[in-house]
């Protein structure tokens, strides 16, 4: 057990180091901007005096590495700075009424989590069931059709899927709302209904991938001798797969699920824009367009952190589910 614990701690530390380096990359990339934030806010016609004043307020007169540690310290303590778009210049520069980045991000982050959660709840059972069925009936018409369908849905852009779903489920057959304008304190049922269409879009994209992986990992196992043995005992093919192959294929499947949730993070950006879903992806794209640097920076770090965390989870899961590592000789 010690062995496994050691490996896991090592992985966690490695993940932390990666995150730290990624934060450096993001910070440096943003600071490659010509001029600085102060000039960017005020535009080219600004006087030297006002630029300097804003610089002082935002701490931009400090050297680069001091600012980095300020920013990093802020990130850890939850102070993500002030959004440029929401800067309130009337109450003195950088005054008291400013909306912080945290105020903007937190509600949206929970919305995105909700969307990802709903998607996972729909996608994972469907993907595993279909994957098992495709492995069971491999090389039949069903398997071929499933192969073509999943390959098509993996390779289509998210917005194509999104608009096709809008067309079918919202416009031609008005079953679901095509705009996901959810707000705080919305009743759960209504919220779920409004989230359904974006969740279904993401489901289509993610399910295909998970299903192919499930199918591949089960088929991979079907060649092993103990499956042959089970077959020779005369067990039904369904039972062979569900009782004998699936438990051993669980490790790669869990791995794939975690990786796909990580994939959801990028998919979420486009889908949220299509459905005007007030999540963090929408905020990110809006901030990119108006060059609201602190928000872009913070969103980017959050996305990267979630991505690294999910990849790490996949990694640790596969270590934990490997019996050779769990029970060393």
């Amino acid at each position: 057990m010690n062995n496994v614990l050691g490996i896991i701690i090592q992985r966690l530390l490695l993940g932390l180091v990666t995150l730290l380096i990624v934060s450096v990359v993001i910070f440096v990339a943003v600071n490659l901007l010509p001029g600085d934030f102060a000039q960017l806010i005020l535009g080219q016609g600004a006087t030297e005096e006002s630029v300097n004043s804003i610089r002082r307020d935002l701490g931009l007169d400090q050297p680069l590495f001091v600012r980095y540690f300020d920013w990093l310290g802020g990130m850890i303590t939850g102070d993500l700075g002030t959004s440029f778009a929401q800067l309130n210049f009337t109450t003195g520069l950088g005054g008291v009424n400013n909306v912080t980045v945290l105020d903007q991000i937190l509600p949206r982050l929970s919305n995105t989590m909700f969307l990802a959660g709903v998607t996972a709840m729909i996608a994972v059972p469907i993907a595993v069931t279909l994957g098992v069925l495709a492995a069971l009936y491999r090389n039949t018409v069903f398997d071929r059709a499933a192969n073509i369908a999943t390959l098509s849905s993996i390779s289509s852009p998210e917005f194509f899927m999104a608009y096709v779903l809008i067309l079918i489920l919202a416009v031609i057959n008005p079953l679901l709302p095509s705009l996901s304008n959810i707000y705080d304190g919305m009743p759960f049922g209504e919220r779920l209904e409004k989230t359904m269409l974006p969740a279904l879009t993401l489901t289509l994209v993610v399910t295909a991938h998970m299903m192919r992986m499930t199918r591949a990992s089960i088929i991979n196992l079907l060649a092993s001798p103990y499956i042959e043995m089970a077959r020779l005992k005369g067990i039904s093919p369904m039972r062979v797969i569900v009782r004998h192959a699936l438990p051993n294929a669980l490790a790669p499947i869990i791995n794939v699920i975690a990786l796909n949730l990580a994939y959801l993070i990028t998919g979420v950006v486009v889908v949220e824009v299509v459905f005007v879903y007030p999540g963090i992806g929408q905020l990110f794209v809006d901030s990119v367009k108006i060059r609201d640097i602190p928000v872009v920076q913070a969103c980017c770090l959050i996305f990267a952190a979630a991505y690294i965390l999910l990849n790490l989870t996949a990694d640790i899961m596969s270590i934990l589910s490997n019996p050779r590592l769990r029970h060393p000789k």
Binding site: T266, A304, I308, N311
Partner: peptide, 14 residues
């Protein structure tokens, strides 16, 4: 370690 679409968006801003 950075999701590619996110990183691309960040760099495109700059």
């Amino acid at each position: 370690a950075i999701p590619s679409l996110i990183f691309a968006l960040l760099l495109m801003t700059i």
